[in-house]
Design a protein around this nucleic acid. Structure first.
Length: 426
RNA sequence: GCGGUCGUGGCGAAGUGGUUAACGCACCGGAUUGUGGCUCCGGCAUCCGUGGGUUCGAUCCCCACCGAUCGCCCCA
């Protein structure tokens, strides 16, 4: 029985890896323009980072973490999301003391969640994410959202929907929370099993329950927008104003609730509306988390960020039939005839490579014809044919695979000629 | 965690309770001792996800497990 990759994990094979590289490169360019710097944190953290950061009552912490004890008896957890990890690094490394504020970071890191796998939902998933720590300016919220949207747009995605909401500050959020509990308490028994427990742990989640969607109580349920204090309202208005100013279309959904405890004020999600994208439509999600740094032992510091699933991004590109430009060609392939030539080819490719030329040769002991077929398969632009006779005369045949033209050149001049040919825009 | 569907060579895809498991693509070899993309010929699954059961006999029937996939939950 062959060993397979664990459930919910996948190999990214060479062809696929080229698409990943392209996507990552494009996104990194956007990050540079927005002046964000990369950060990388460990794949595992002390379990406490997520318990305190993400919140004990969340699904992630309650049932999705890969938690284990190491040989020293420490409880460690494979990173399920980026924000708490990056914030921990921010606190530990005292980045709040860095003269450059706010600290604007981006990352590409794998995350791990124990869930039932599906397409677009992996146990090891890769996220691109951004975190800005140290500024409570609503313009930063807008910048972060703009950055996310720009990444998608640069890659060619068009069927996108941006949904935003505000959870208000701590005070507003607490007031709203209590209002919900009070409102639903009389009909608690009529709600689904999940909602009955949600009501205590995270009452806002009751609002977007699919099961109880049609319950009469939903209609007149209190809205967060009615419980915002003046400051929170102002903040949200500012964010919206900036988005509008930049021409970024959005929809306000008062029921948008993110599943992580650390969020307050701005929360947003970006979904794909592409045909046939299936039930999983969320491409990215994020929000503001002004209490998190303190929660993790740092000084009071505002923060905002988002996570974007790379697998889902790739799916969205596919759903919108956006081809990713991938260069699969090979500059040069060496075909040999005869034993001596085959041996000399080892040196030949080494020398050409030293001169910066991309070149490969046969290692399967193929016949000449099959070597040419291999060259075609690799989409070789040029083939260098080296036989024992040529070797004797210290020359080599250089064949242009597009035109079929072949010329004979002295071995000593080969590297220079190849460089010229390849630079000629071929 | 719950419910449905599915699992045959590198890929795609037929098929049947009973000696040699179609076909297409890809790959390898030959026709063409040293030059590709076309054509023709030949080769290429001791085996039908894994384990067990039913049966004289199972890839085809049953069960379990594993995996994929769809929906729910949740989210990226």
């Amino acid at each position: 029985m062959i060993i397979k990759a664990p459930r919910g994990t996948a190999d990214i094979l060479p062809i696929e890896a080229k698409r990943w590289q392209y996507v990552e490169d494009q996104i990194k360019k956007v990050c540079e323009r927005y002046h964000y710097d990369e950060i990388r944190t460990p794949v595992f953290e002390h379990t406490e980072v997520f318990q305190r950061g993400v919140g004990d009552s969340t699904d992630i912490v309650q049932k999705e973490m890969y938690t284990f004890e190491d040989r020293g008896g420490r409880s460690l957890t494979l990173r399920p999301e980026g924000t708490a990890a990056v914030t921990r690094a921010f606190v530990q490394n005292k980045l709040y003391g860095d003269p450059s504020q706010p600290v604007k970071l981006y990352y590409f890191m794998p995350m791990f969640r124990y869930e039932r796998p599906q397409q677009g939902r992996m146990r090891q998933l890769n996220q691109f994410g951004v975190e800005v720590l140290g500024s409570a300016d609503p313009a930063v919220d807008a910048e972060v959202i703009d950055l996310a949207m720009t990444c998608y747009q640069e890659l060619g995605l068009r069927s996108l929907k941006l949904v935003i909401n505000t959870l208000g500050d701590k005070e507003s959020r607490a007031a709203y929370r209590q209002a919900l509990i009070d409102y639903f308490a009389p009909v608690k028994e009529e709600l689904c099993q999940d909602c009955q427990s949600r009501l205590n742990q995270n009452p806002m989640r009751v609002l977007d329950c699919k099961t109880d969607r049609n319950h009469p109580a939903m209609e007149n349920a209190p809205s967060i927008l009615d419980y915002l204090n003046e400051e929170s309202k102002q903040y949200f208005e500012q964010v919206k104003t900036y988005l509008t100013m930049m021409g970024i279309a959005y929809e306000v959904d008062p029921n948008l609730v993110r599943g992580l405890d650390y969020y307050n004020h701005t929360a947003f999600e970006i979904m794909s509306e592409a045909e046939g994208f299936g039930a999983i439509t969320t491409l990215a999600g994020g929000g503001r988390y002004n209490g998190l740094v303190e929660e993790l032992g740092g000084p009071s510091t505002p923060g905002i960020g988002f996570g974007m699933g790379i697998e889902r991004l790739l799916m969205a590109l596919e759903a919108e039939k956006k081809d990713i430009p991938v260069d699969e060609s090979l500059d040069c392939f060496v075909v040999t005839m005869g034993d001596e030539a085959a041996k000399q080819a080892v040196l030949l490719v080494h020398e050409l490579r030293t001169h910066g030329i991309q070149v490969d040769k046969d290692y399967q002991g193929r016949k000449v014809k099959a070597q040419f077929k291999a060259a075609d398969r690799y989409k070789a632009k040029y083939v260098l044919v080296l036989g024992d006779e040529e070797l004797e005369m210290q020359v080599i045949n250089l064949k242009d695979m597009d035109t079929g033209d072949q010329i004979q050149v002295p071995l000593t001049e080969l590297a220079v000629i190849m460089q010229e040919k390849l630079q000629g825009g071929k």
